[in-house]
Computed example of a mutant assay.
Amino acid sequence: MTIPFVDLKAQYHSIKPEIDAAVFRVLESSQFILGAEVAAFEKEFAAFCGVENAIGVNSGTSALHLALLAAGIGPGDEVITVSFTFVATVAAICYTGARPVFVDINPHSFTMDPEKIEAAITKKTKAILPVHLYGQCADMDPILAIAKKHNLVVIEDSAQAHGAEYKGRKAGSMGDLGCFSFYPGKNLGAYGEGGMITTNNPDYTRTIRMLRDWGAEKKYQHVLKGYNYRLEGIQGAILNVKLKYLDQWSEARRNHAALYSKLLAGSKVVTPETMPYGKPVFHVYAVRTTAREELMAHLTKDGIQHGIHYPFPVHMLPAHADLGYKAGDFPESEKAASQVLSLPMFAELTDDQIQTVADSIQKWSRG
């Protein structure tokens, strides 16, 4: 029997009547782009995150792009971020004409190492963009303190961290802006593409609402050079249904992670650490091993799906060779990229499935 890496169908079937009703409601209203369902979801998601405003867009990448633009980032500017992330984090910076400047990660959290930031700041630095990777928040207090000291904007890449907490504060509520993805596989996933920007700043909110809809404040009144980044009505309706279940799904993921870590004790993999400041939501459960290819082959043979998030740090990708970085520049990011392996993780995962995965890894560990 195959154990899937993620099972989107299981989640759909658990809430099928509510999802179907929400979709048909949009079909009846025919508000397919933005509309009342998106507005309702924006309001609920803002409350969930503990912020004043949430603006729905068509992807997490668009969220990052518009957050950067609203913050005034453009050609000639520099934005400090990490290389150990999905490429969209860096691509969004490049879209604005700004230059991504990387710092290394803390190997225990896989997130930005605050101690590396100040050495990377120049006269061109305008923003810091930490990534809450794998559902665990970056160490935000020192990041925010550095940003305040140097008058920098902080934009949280919260694409994998819906509901994650840092010292009691939700991801997306601590910086000047927060950016979320609702890609189907995310903890809060749409049935298609979707994204959200969170902020307490009314000026950012007004600018982003215009930028997502061709720069128009009212129809045909184009104030800014904008984009077609609008969230679809059906996605807003679906996400608003799913949001009600997110806390219980996050708790299920934390329980799954705890069971994994217990059952994998003594094996040849290093299990993920939960930082003392945080309450993660385990978007993925990533172990580390120096024999990743061997373990992957073993898991495949046992019918256990798995993934790598991410096999190459961005500074080593051909697409971003123009940034001028080289192997060895960010040793912790490079080491993590060569060792991490993501095991099956989704709210509907069963204890028996986790036991099967753990047994397989323990068997491999014994050789």
Rank of each mutant, 00 (worst) to 15 (best):
M1P: 08
M1A: 13
T2Q: 10
I3M: 00
A10C: 04
Q11C: 01
Y12R: 14
H13E: 15
S14W: 01
E18G: 00
V26Y: 09
E28R: 14
S30T: 06
G35S: 07
A40W: 02
A40Y: 05
F41C: 06
A46N: 10
G50H: 04
G50M: 03
G50V: 08
N53K: 15
S59L: 09
A63M: 06
H65K: 12
P75D: 08
V79S: 00
I80N: 08
F84E: 07
T89E: 06
V90S: 05
A92H: 01
I93F: 03
G97Q: 09
V101D: 00
T111M: 11
T111R: 10
D113W: 04
K116Q: 12
K123P: 02
K124I: 01
K126Q: 03
L129V: 03
P130C: 07
P130F: 00
Y134C: 05
Q136K: 06
C137K: 02
A147M: 01
K148W: 02
E156L: 06
H162T: 15
D176H: 15
D176W: 10
P184D: 06
K186W: 06
L188P: 02
A190F: 01
G195Q: 07
T199C: 08
T199W: 11
T205M: 08
R206C: 08
I208K: 01
R209L: 12
M210R: 12
G215N: 05
Y220I: 08
H222P: 01
K225L: 09
Y229Q: 09
L231S: 07
G233Q: 10
I234G: 01
A237D: 00
A258L: 10
A258I: 13
K268V: 05
P276H: 11
Y277F: 14
V284I: 14
A286G: 04
T289N: 00
E293K: 15
M296H: 04
K301R: 15
G307T: 10
H320S: 09
A321G: 11
L323N: 06
G324L: 13
A336T: 13
V340D: 05
S342H: 12
L343Y: 07
M345S: 06
D351L: 07
D352V: 13
I354A: 00
A358M: 11
S360W: 10
I361S: 04
Q362C: 15
W364Q: 04
W364D: 08
